[in-house]
Design a binder for these strands. Structure first.
Length: 423
DNA sequence: TCTGGGGTCCTAGGACCC
DNA sequence: TCTGGGGTCCTAGGACCC
């Protein structure tokens, strides 16, 4: 069996830990620029505020019902998330953090204890020590855990925060009740397709022939029906390194001038390279996109994106900046009101492979002295024993040309041993 | 006036190679 | 007019998740 621990109205619950007077009151948390509602308390949901609602449309309602609203504080949320995870994981051997407010626990092998009582204890401990209320759904597969969790949330009086779905009878009852669109992995498009074919409840999907499911949903669908039947298809994933990094923003006001948009896009590129360096990886692909305001039907719409595969992996802000600029030049068109843009980097390799790429990119032979120095160090200490350290406090050469140390270094053509790391 | 910001995975098709 | 069979890499787009 697996258990899914899911924090209730997570961002709102975090805000409540700072201010207990928010208990039992309608509260919402808003996204960047206070644009959208990204978390709602139960009271706010009861007022009919939908998820992702644009805040400006509900200003009047907020005022009328005295809804407290907060700008998102992601540092706080990350911190509280860690606390919850620490407690929950201490009860099991294997677990998977699925998102900022959810984690799966592996209860396989817990044969001689009462899983319900065990999870209730986890829940109470989290509540007591972090003040974050959680719901726990227990079932044989991840997909069914999601269902069980949903049941806990929909019937709070009945289940006291924990529901265990451990018999075929319970599973059937749940699936006959659950709308197809609420199944994990079925989104808006598929819901419409399903309804067209007479599938309204999760249970209905299981009555369809496997070939049909395969055709409509692809390989995903086959896995899903098995999961719903209680046959495990999805294992717990160990935390894996990221596969892409995206920095995208909507602008406060629409931008028409090329240089204004360029400036933002360049900044996004810088953030990407910073994050790459933080996790000691380099990327092989860079994507830039721009788009106009999709809600302004009165203005011409334009959106475009372009990807470049780099000849060599890098995390240098200079090289990435250059690529970002190149792509931006290719996709930017004059005469549109731009509202959103972003840079995405992906296809990562470990940072060790970066130096080579830097030298290969070195068209002006700026780094020739460095290569010579590297050679000398290699001879002296043996290959693979030395590595270039940071030149300027920045963990990359790409930036180094901005630093006085680096300029001095280029002038004198000297590199001291202090610039090297040994391992 | 004001409409988020991350991520993952899958598929199909084109270009190119042998 | 007929018109291989693989393979890889890359791109674009769609669908989903929180």
């Amino acid at each position: 069996m697996y258990a899914l621990v899911d924090c209730n109205n997570f961002f709102v619950s975090c805000e409540r830990t700072l201010d207990s007077s928010l208990e039992n009151k309608p509260v919402v948390v808003l996204s960047n620029n206070d644009g959208c509602v990204v978390s709602r308390s139960k009271e706010a949901k009861d007022l009919g505020i939908p998820m992702a609602a644009p805040a400006f449309k509900y200003k009047e309602l907020f005022r009328k019902y005295d809804v407290k609203s907060f700008s998102a504080k992601f540092e706080l949320y990350n911190f509280k998330s860690q606390q919850v995870i620490e407690i929950a994981r201490s009860y099991v051997l294997e677990y998977e953090t699925y998102s900022i407010d959810e984690l799966f626990l592996d209860l396989t092998g817990f044969k001689y204890i009462n899983l319900y009582d065990y999870c209730l204890e986890i829940r109470n401990k989290i509540q007591k020590e972090t003040s974050i209320p959680v719901s726990i759904g227990i079932a044989p597969t991840k997909t069914l855990c999601k269902v069980a969790n949903r049941i806990v949330k929909d019937f709070p009086e009945k289940f006291n925060g924990v529901y265990i779905m451990d018999t075929p009878e319970k599973i059937e009852k749940a699936l006959r009740w659950l709308n197809i669109g609420d199944v994990w992995g079925i989104g808006r498009k598929l819901t419409a397709k399903m309804n067209d074919s007479g599938v309204y409840k999760a249970w209905d999907l299981l009555q369809k022939p496997e070939m049909w499911v395969r055709k409509v949903m692809g390989i995903h669908g086959v896995r899903m029906i098995n999961e719903l039947k209680g046959i495990r298809q999805l294992e717990l994933d160990s935390p894996s390194p990221k596969k892409s990094i995206a920095v995208t923003r909507s602008f406060m006001e629409m931008l028409m001038k090329k240089d204004e948009v360029r400036e933002r896009v360049e900044t996004f590129g810088m953030y990407c390279s910073e994050r790459l360096r933080k996790q000691n990886t380099c990327c092989k692909m860079v994507t830039v996109f721009v788009q106009t305001n999709r809600f302004r039907k009165d203005l011409p719409e334009y959106r475009n994106a372009m990807t470049k595969v780099l000849p060599n992996p890098t995390n240098s802000s200079i090289i990435i900046g250059r690529v970002v600029n190149e792509l931006f030049e290719a996709i930017f068109k004059e005469g549109f009101h731009y509202k959103k843009a972003g840079v995405i980097v992906n296809d990562f390799v470990p940072e060790d492979q970066r130096l080579i790429s830097l030298f290969e990119e070195d068209t002006q032979n700026q780094h020739l002295p460095v290569m010579k120095a590297m050679d000398a160090m290699n001879k002296k200490y043996g290959k693979d024993k030395v590595r270039l350290g940071s030149m300027s406090g920045e963990n990359t050469f790409g930036r180094a040309q901005l630093s006085p140390e680096y300029e001095a270094f280029l002038k004198n053509n000297t590199l001291t041993e202090a610039n090297f790391r040994f391992h």
